[in-house]
């Protein structure tokens, strides 16, 4: 899986691919505000002009929590391209976000860390 996504990233000759991102939050908490800011910055940096970002406040639409399998907030979901990816947290760890979005190859150590 990694080689293909890697090639996707490294060959800009591919037709423009739309990234559909959703950020689930629960109200205007410091964490959700931080997550939004971090995400906005990342997208501008790596996905200029080829992403759609939707912010969903679960306090307003709680039924979506079940539909989209949301557990933690904030959660960033990459709906497209498939496969679906989920990144939880305030997205302050840029490295992990990029790995999670397959914008950067995974380290050999896997997804441990902290």
């Amino acid at each position: 899986m990694n080689p293909t996504t890697d090639s996707l990233k490294t060959t800009p000759a591919e037709p423009v691919e739309l990234w559909e991102l959703r950020l689930y939050v629960a109200g205007q908490t410091p964490k959700s505000l931080a997550a939004f800011a971090n995400l906005k910055r990342l997208c501008e940096e790596h996905l200029q002009e080829r992403y759609v970002l939707e912010v969903i406040d679960l306090l307003k639409t709680p039924q979506l929590a079940e539909d989209d399998q949301i557990l933690a907030v904030p959660t960033l979901v990459r709906k497209l391209p498939v496969p679906i990816r989920k990144i939880i947290g305030d997205l302050s760890n840029t490295e992990r976000v990029l790995v999670g979005l397959d914008l950067r190859p995974r380290a050999s150590g896997g997804n441990d860390g902290n």
């Binding site: 306090l59 949301i70 933690a72 907030v73 947290g89 305030d90």
Partner: peptide, 24 residues
């Protein structure tokens, strides 16, 4: 659905999503 391979952790979070879901 809790699948470690599908979830990347990047920063602070809480389980409010679960609470909202359950509460709903």
């Amino acid at each position: 659905r809790v699948e470690r391979s599908e979830i990347e952790e990047a920063g602070e979070y809480d389980l409010e999503g679960l609470f909202i879901r359950l509460g709903h």
